[in-house]
Design a protein around this nucleic acid. Structure first.
Length: 430
RNA sequence: UCCGGAGUAGCUCAGUGGUAGAGCGAGUGGCUGUUAACCACCAGGUCGGGAGUUCAAAUCUCUCCUCCGGAGCCA
């Protein structure tokens, strides 16, 4: 017998198949009952009647409970009355295990209750759709860079010091010495770019900031490409092609899941390259035109980002930020000492920053100046400075926050649903 | 850390000083085309913890705890 998955039901019409899964829901009538069976790829309505199934199979209706594991054998049919358009007429039903009373009913539950049951909540339709979209986004990320001859360079999760002085890091005891969980692989990525030309790292990152908002996790995944001999414009070219590719892959492969989430797909279809590019200075003008009391030199808050991004249908790239509000490694703009060759990409619909990047400072003297201005020493960044000593080169890169992109593309209100087991300030279990 | 909001049945909630409620879920029975099925019956409570006011507190006051939302910071 062929291997069979519910998502491929249309390939099995008229055939007898065996379906192994769990009871999503059961509706009983006198001499007929309907089993909504979940197999991990979808949900299939199985019809069990006294005519078509044997007596033992039929009587399972008296003992089966929500999420009991079952194996059903029967013929796949097209059936307009069935949710999904297909159903299975059961000949045989086997109970593998009877589930105890399942804590997640098909009715509404509060977010904290559901997060306590996250290991079970993942089985529900909505979470299933989100995780499959997340999967497609991750695959798109890898495919995009792999297809462009980027080499994957994994960067360490234990790090001795902060990448950017300001962020609060998680400290661990590393054989008696303090070590910190990484907040970025970027500095290591630059070493990789000098060795391999174009690289990316993709892994978990950690922020210990006590932020409780819909946009923050303490543990999230970030992909960070780094490219030798790329300037700011080339960096932005790559960033927009990258995001456009992710959007197109989700639209191509995850339309049913977007529909499950009731995402407005037309908004995603309206995203097109080239993405708008505006300077920080122009972004400030947009804010001022919209009545925001904003001074050149301040950083944008969430509300400011929403105003700026709402001017455009596609993600907008804001470039050339004030040096004072950006990291020490960003290259100074040769045309204006006050600003650096940075870029942020803001997603539409108020979803905020999904990419932050820059051309990197390749002049060792200027870099040392910035390091000292941050209160650090040359010794702190000894190996990083070596990259400028031994064949310095223009290079650029950016970081994209995976969960922020999942939130945006799924149209979610909160980032915590985008990770299988999210970590927030108040959530370490399950 | 700061500013708001919430905590009542397994779940989601109503209940503003006078006998603790509903829907769903669980249980029992019925039903051959159900769509979060439906109908009938039924069980289920330390009203977040502690203290106070009052003849009387889920309800008013104080305090603690937990969670939610937002700000700052960031991806």
């Amino acid at each position: 017998m062929k291997e069979y998955f519910i998502q491929n039901a249309k390939d099995f019409i008229g055939e007898e198949v065996t379906l192994k899964g769990w009871a999503y829901n059961v509706r009983k009538s006198g001499k007929i009952w309907f089993l909504m069976l979940r197999d991990g790829t979808g949900i299939m309505q199985c019809v069990v009647t006294k005519f078509d199934a044997d007596e033992d199979s039929f009587n399972i209706k008296d003992s089966i409970t929500q999420e009991s594991s079952v194996i059903v054998t029967g013929e796949v049919k097209e059936e307009p009355r069935s949710p999904g358009g297909y159903e299975m007429l059961a000949k045989k039903v086997e109970l593998v295990s009877i589930a105890e009373e399942y804590p997640i009913s098909l009715k509404e539950h509060g977010i904290d209750y559901l997060m306590d049951k996250r290991h079970l909540w993942l089985r529900s339709k909505r979470q299933h759709a989100i995780m499959r979209i997340r999967h497609t986004i991750i695959k798109s990320i890898r495919d995009f860079f792999d297809d462009r001859d980027f080499t994957l360079i994994d960067t360490p999760i234990f790090q001795q010091a902060a990448t950017e002085g300001t962020a609060t890091l998680f400290e661990t005891d590393y054989f008696g010495e303090p070590a910190y969980l990484t907040q970025s692989g970027q500095l290591y990525g630059e070493a990789g770019a000098a060795a391999f030309g174009k690289i990316y790292c993709f892994g978990p990152t950690f922020r210990a900031e006590k932020s409780k908002t819909r946009r923050h996790l303490t543990e999230f995944w970030m992909v960070e490409p780094e490219m030798a001999y790329y300037d700011l414009d080339m960096n932005m070219d790559l960033a927009e092609a990258f995001v456009q590719y992710i959007v197109s892959q989700v639209l191509e492969h995850r339309r049913p899941e977007l529909e499950t989430l009731e995402r407005d797909i037309s908004i995603l279809e309206g995203i097109q390259t080239p993405f708008p590019r505006i300077s920080y200075t122009d972004a400030v003008k947009i804010l001022q035109k919209n009545g925001v009391d904003f001074k050149w030199g301040d950083d944008f808050g969430g509300a400011d980002e929403t105003i700026i991004s709402s001017q455009f249908k596609s993600p907008v790239m804001v470039h050339r930020y004030p040096a004072a509000i950006k990291a020490f490694y960003m290259k100074r703009d040769p045309e204006n000492e006050e600003q650096v060759l940075a870029l942020d990409m803001l997603a539409p619909e108020g979803y905020g920053e999904i990419i932050g990047g820059s051309q990197r400072e390749d002049d060792i003297d200027l870099l040392i100046q910035r390091i000292k201005a941050d209160g650090a020493t040359e010794e702190d960044y000894a190996w990083y400075l070596d990259l400028r000593r031994y064949g310095s080169f223009p290079h650029s890169g950016f970081g994209l926050g995976l969960e922020r992109v999942v939130t945006w593309l799924c149209g979610l209100k909160h980032i915590r649903e985008t990770a299988p087991f999210p970590r927030t300030m108040t959530r370490l279990n399950p």
